[in-house]
Amino acid sequence: MVQYSPARLDASFAALSDATRRGVLEQLGREDASITQLAERFHMTLTGMKKHVGVLEQAGLVSTEKVGRVRTCRIGHGALDEAAAWIEAYRQMWDARFSELDRIVQELKRKEQRDGRRKKS
């Protein structure tokens, strides 16, 4: 399995555990936005939104740039790519396990059908 940074994954998943932060990422996926615009969109105070953006920024999911008095947020892909790769590795593992389970179940069904026909004769 691929090696991942546990601290970075922890930060990413902690950031993604909050519905507001997931909503912010969804919004930023459509277009960049200022913290003020995000606060208005989510009906929050500027202070509350700054905290959410800070968590996302620490996790590497968002980057910000301050021009004058406006801090613009944009989605950052690095940490999200790492989290997606981690999830994908486990998805592939579980797919393989479920495929093997399906194979075993089908084999047992065929055996059961063969045995059932022999008993009726």
Rank of each mutant, 00 (worst) to 15 (best):
F13W: 07
G78H: 12
I35T: 13
V2A: 12
V2R: 15
Q92F: 06
A33E: 04
G68V: 02
S99F: 03
A79Y: 00
L38A: 01
Q27E: 14
R30N: 11
W86E: 09
A79V: 06
G23H: 05
R71M: 12
R71K: 11
F42A: 00
S63T: 14
V24W: 04
G60F: 07
K51L: 08
L101M: 11
L46E: 11
L25A: 06
G54H: 02
H43C: 01
V62E: 04
F13M: 07
D10A: 15
L9D: 09
R91G: 08
R21T: 05
Q27Y: 11
V24E: 01
L46P: 10
T36R: 07
D102E: 15
H52N: 15
S12D: 04
R91D: 10
Q27H: 13
T64K: 09
K50Y: 07
A79D: 00
D81H: 12
V2G: 03
V2K: 14
G48R: 03
E26V: 11
R97E: 15
A89M: 14
R97C: 01
S99D: 14
T20V: 15
I75A: 09
A79H: 05
E31T: 09
A11C: 07
A7I: 10
F42V: 00
D81M: 11
L9K: 03
S99R: 14
M93F: 12
S12G: 10
A84P: 10
K66G: 03
G23I: 05
R69P: 03
Q58L: 11
L80N: 01
Y90P: 02
L61V: 03
A19E: 12
R74H: 12
T45Y: 00
G48V: 00
D18R: 09
S5A: 13
Q92C: 08
E40F: 00
R91E: 13
A84C: 13
S5P: 07
T64W: 05
Q37Y: 02
D10E: 15
P6F: 08
T47K: 08
V70N: 10
A84N: 12
Q37W: 02
S34K: 00
L25S: 09
M93D: 11
L61C: 01
P6A: 10
V62R: 00
T72D: 02
E82S: 15
K50G: 04
R21V: 06
Y4W: 06
M49I: 04
V55L: 08
R74P: 01
A59N: 05
S12Y: 02
E88R: 14
T45R: 04
T72C: 02
E65M: 12
G68F: 06
D102Q: 15
K50L: 11
L80H: 06
L9M: 06
